[in-house]
Simulated scan of single mutants.
Amino acid sequence: MNTGNIYKGSCFCGAVQFTVSGEPAAMGYCHCESCRHWSASPVNAFTLWKAGAVQVTQGADNIDTYNKTTQSYRKWCKTCGGHIFTEHPGWGLTDVYAASIPEFPFHADIHVNYQETVLRIKDGLPKMKDLPKEMGGSGVSVPE
């Protein structure tokens, strides 16, 4: 497990609880159709954590999984349906939804999959057409 700051998170009802520790590998906003539909919002705030930084501390048996693709294993609470996180095994990262870790100081660095946006956000952050090259994307930036 990473050392440093530890933040507590949970599903909507609290049946599933977890911690994230250390610092995330990245933070930002995803505008892809899958994230928008999954989060039921026009944009999804993400925090990406390396393996071992996310620890389920309660209710592991109450977590279910859905994977639309082999890149994303979306996790939610079987009691309340609250979304918890998405594992990305190909990247060795777990996306913990920023809203599920309320005391974590979220500061976005980037917008990804901005070509799919339905909500233009003028915040001066870089806007990637899809994903950065190191994550298998084109690495192409697009205007706000």
Rank of each mutant, 00 (worst) to 15 (best):
F18C: 05
G4F: 06
K68N: 12
T65R: 13
S100E: 10
R36Q: 13
P126M: 12
Y7E: 08
T3S: 14
F104L: 15
M27E: 15
T94V: 14
M1W: 03
W76N: 04
A60T: 13
L119V: 10
F12I: 01
Y73E: 12
K122R: 14
E33M: 09
G9T: 04
Y29Q: 04
G28D: 05
H88W: 02
T57W: 07
P89S: 06
E33K: 13
F18W: 08
C13M: 05
S41E: 07
N62W: 03
C11A: 09
P42S: 12
I101Y: 02
R74W: 03
T70V: 15
C35G: 02
P126S: 10
Q115F: 11
G81Y: 03
A99T: 11
P105A: 09
T19D: 10
A25P: 00
H88E: 13
E103M: 00
Y73Q: 15
I121A: 07
C13I: 12
P102H: 09
V140H: 04
V20T: 11
N2F: 11
P24V: 10
K129D: 11
P126Y: 01
H88A: 10
G124R: 14
C13T: 08
F106R: 10
T70M: 07
Y66R: 13
S21M: 11
P132Y: 02
L93F: 07
K75G: 00
G52K: 08
G139E: 02
S34V: 10
T117R: 15
C32K: 08
N44Y: 05
G52D: 09
D64Y: 11
I84Y: 04
V96N: 06
R74I: 13
M128R: 01
H107S: 14
P143L: 13
N67Y: 12
S138K: 11
G90E: 10
T19N: 13
G81Q: 06
M135L: 15
N44V: 13
Y66N: 08
I110P: 01
Y7P: 00
K8P: 00
L131T: 09
E23M: 11
T94K: 08
W91M: 14
W91T: 06
R36H: 03
R36A: 09
I101N: 00
K50M: 10
K75Y: 05
L48C: 08
E87M: 08
